[in-house]
Design a protein around this nucleic acid. Structure first.
Lengths: 335, 335
DNA sequence: AGCGCCGTTGAGAGCGCTCTCTCCCCGTGG
DNA sequence: CCACGGGGAGAGAGCGCTCTCAACGGCGCT
C-alpha cells in the first residue's frame, strides 16, 4: 500500500479512500491512484482490513444434524442430500452479489463446541444455521454467543432469533385436499421423524385437516426422510393397511422409495394408490410416475435467510423477525 | 489478551506461548494462564493472528464449470450433483482434524476474475480446484498466482501443479472386461462430454481395450453426465443400434436414466442389455436393478487432494506431485 | 483585504496478535 | 567463589490496514 501511495504521490490514507470508494477524493487523484494500483498489482490484505473493520465478509453455513455412529457416512449423507444442496445454492446466490463468501460447516452434536469456538473467533460475520432436530442445543448456544444468526425453521424453544420457514401445516393440508379431491377415501401418511418439528407439523397438519373433513383417524408410519426409510415405511404400511388409496409422504426422497415399493408389489400409481410428496426436490422428477408434490421453495428460503442475515450484520441491534413462505402444490402424475 | 496476561500475572508473550503450545513454558505458569483464559473467556482474534502469521487456516474449494445460461440452475446443479457432494464430504473430513475450514466457491467462466481476486486477497491458504473442462483457463490462472493448489484431474495443458485423479482408462477397461465376460457381444457406450478429459478417457479406454479383443468399432452416444441426458442418449442408442446387449455408461447418473428408458421400452436388464455405470455414487443404489458400476473413490480422492494441499501449504517450495487412484468394479444386478 | 468555511489530504494512532531479541536467574564446572 | 551456559519470561517492534483529527489551501463573503 505504501508502494501504491508513493507511486501515486499521495498518502496511504488517500489510497485507502480510493479503494473503499470514499466520495471526497479529487477525481484526478483518484485516477492516479487507480493507475498506481493497476501498475503495482496491489491487492489489499484482507487480514489487516478485518483486524480494523471487524468484518470478515464471510458467513458460516452450519448444518447441524444429530449423531451418526459413522462420521464418514454422516458427511456423505449431508453433502449428498439435495435439500442441503438447494440450501447451499440459494444462500450462495444471495450472498455472491455482496461479495460475501460461505464457509460450510457440518456438525453433529459431538462437536458443537468446535463450531462455537470457530464462531467466537470471529472468522465469520454471521451464521446461517440449519438445524431441525428438536433437542439440538446449537441454536441456543449460537444465540447466546450474540453473533448475528438466522435459523432455518421455527426454533422449538422460544429464542429471540430470526428464522425462515415454510408453512408446514398448510403444505400438508394442500396434499390432503388434493387426495380428497381425487376421490381417495382410505388415506394414510408416511411422516418424517417426529422429533423434528417439520416432521411433526406435516403429520399434524395432515391429520387435523382431514379430521375436519370427516377422517378422525389417519394411519401413519414414521420415516426418516431417506429413500431407504421410505421403502421400509411403505412396505410396513401396505402390510398394516392393505386397502389405502391415498398417501401423503413427508418428503420426496421417501416418496421415491415408496413408489418403488408400490411398483415392485404391483400397485398402480396413481390408480390404486395416489401419492403426494413434499419438497419438490429433484427427486420428484427422478420418480416414475413423476411425483405430485408440495413445493417448498428451498432456494428462495435460503436466499431469504441470507438477506435477513446480512440485514442483521449491517444493523446490529435489529430485532429478530421471521419470514414464512407459502408452499404450493405441484401436480404431476402420481396423484 | 492483555486482560488474560494481567489475570495470570504474566506478559502477553507468555499468553501467546501457551495458546500456541510453545514447549518452553513452565508448567505452573502454563496452568495459571490456562485458568486465566478460562476465567476471562478469552478467544484469540483470528484476523490479528492471520495478519502476522499470514495464514488463514482455511482453503477454498473452487468448483469451476462451464457457462450456463441460467445462473440459478447452475448453482442448483452443482450443489445437487452427488459427485460434488462427495468431494465436499471427502475434503471436509480430511481438513477437519487440522482445524482448517472450507470456503466453497462455485464459478463459471464468466466470473473467474472474481475468484482470482478472492484468492489473491489472501482469504485462503490454498485452493482445491475442481475443474474438468478442457478449455477451462482457471487452472492456469490459479497456477500463475503462485498460491498452493491441487486440481482434481490431470490438467489438459502441461502445468506444474499437483493433481489427484483416478485411472479413467483402467476403469473403462474394467467395465468392458466385465461385459465381455458376461458374454455380451454387441457392445456400445454412452460417453461423457467429449470436451472433458474424463469423458474422453473413458470412451477411449473402453474402445481401445475392446479393439484389442476383436471389436474394432464400438458405437457411442455422447451424453452430458445428467440423468436426463442419459435417458436421451439411451433412446437414441436403441434407435440407432437396436441389437446391443452390453452397455457401458460413463457415469451413474446417466446410467440411471438409461435404465429407466430400458424399463419403459421393455428391455430386461441385465438379460437383454447388461449395463455398467461409472462412479459408484449413491445413484447406483437408487436404480432398479441395482447398478453394476466402476467405483471411483471420490471421497478418498478429495481427502487426498486436501492432504496434498496441506503439504504444499506447509512446505512452500514443494514440488508438485500427482496421485492416481485405482478404480474397481462393483458388481450388482445390472450386469 | 481579511475572515471563516468547506472540501481534500496527510499524519499518526491504533486494531490484536506473533516473534525476535534481550534479560534474568539458576545450575554447573573450573 | 566466579565465570559461563541455558532455560524461561518480558519488552517491543512490527504485520497492513482504517479512520480520526488536524492542517492546508482556495473560495466567497463582508
Amino acid at each position: 500500500m505504501d508502494q501504491v501511495a508513493e507511486a501515486a504521490g499521495v498518502s496511504r490514507a488517500t489510497v485507502s479512500r480510493v479503494i473503499n470508494g470514499a466520495p471526497s477524493v479529487d477525481s484526478k487523484i483518484r485516477e492516479m491512484v487507480q493507475r498506481a494500483i493497476a501498475e503495482t498489482g496491489y491487492v489489499p490484505n484482507v487480514a489487516a482490513r478485518s483486524l480494523v473493520t471487524r468484518r470478515s465478509n464471510s458467513v458460516a453455513l452450519v448444518i447441524s444434524e444429530p449423531d451418526r455412529p459413522d462420521n464418514h457416512s454422516f458427511l456423505n449423507r449431508i453433502f449428498t442430500d439435495p435439500y442441503f444442496g438447494r440450501i447451499t445454492a440459494g444462500a450462495t446466490s444471495a450472498l455472491r452479489p455482496h461479495d460475501i463468501h460461505l464457509v460450510v460447516i457440518p456438525t453433529d452434536s459431538t462437536d458443537h463446541h468446535q463450531v462455537v469456538r470457530y464462531l467466537r473467533q470471529g472468522h465469520v460475520d454471521g451464521v446461517l444455521l440449519i438445524s431441525s432436530h428438536e433437542q439440538d442445543t446449537l441454536p441456543r448456544q449460537v444465540h447466546d454467543l450474540g453473533i448475528p444468526a438466522v435459523v432455518s425453521a421455527r426454533p422449538t424453544s422460544p429464542i429471540a432469533v430470526s428464522y425462515v420457514d415454510v408453512d408446514q401445516r398448510l403444505g400438508a393440508r394442500l396434499a390432503a385436499e388434493h387426495l380428497l379431491n381425487r376421490g381417495c377415501r382410505a388415506l394414510a401418511t408416511i411422516s418424517g421423524p417426529l422429533d423434528i418439528p417439520s416432521g411433526l407439523d406435516r403429520l399434524d397438519g395432515y391429520r387435523s385437516f382431514l379430521a375436519t373433513r370427516g377422517f378422525p383417524t389417519v394411519p401413519s408410519i414414521e420415516g426418516d426422510f431417506t429413500r431407504a426409510g421410505g421403502e421400509a415405511a411403505a412396505r410396513q404400511l401396505l402390510t398394516d393397511f392393505p386397502d389405502i388409496d391415498g398417501l401423503f409422504v413427508a418428503n420426496d426422497l421417501m416418496a421415491e422409495g415408496a413408489l418403488r415399493v408400490f411398483q415392485d408389489l404391483g400397485r398402480r400409481v396413481p390408480d390404486d394408490i395416489a401419492v403426494v410428496g413434499f419438497d419438490d426436490s429433484s427427486a420428484a422428477l427422478d420418480c416414475r410416475p413423476l411425483l405430485t408434490t408440495v413445493r417448498q421453495p428451498v432456494e428462495e428460503m435460503a436466499a431469504e435467510m441470507a438477506e435477513v442475515l446480512m440485514a442483521h450484520i449491517a444493523t446490529p441491534g435489529r430485532l429478530p423477525r421471521s419470514v414464512t413462505f407459502q408452499p404450493s402444490l405441484v401436480i404431476r402424475d402420481s396423484a
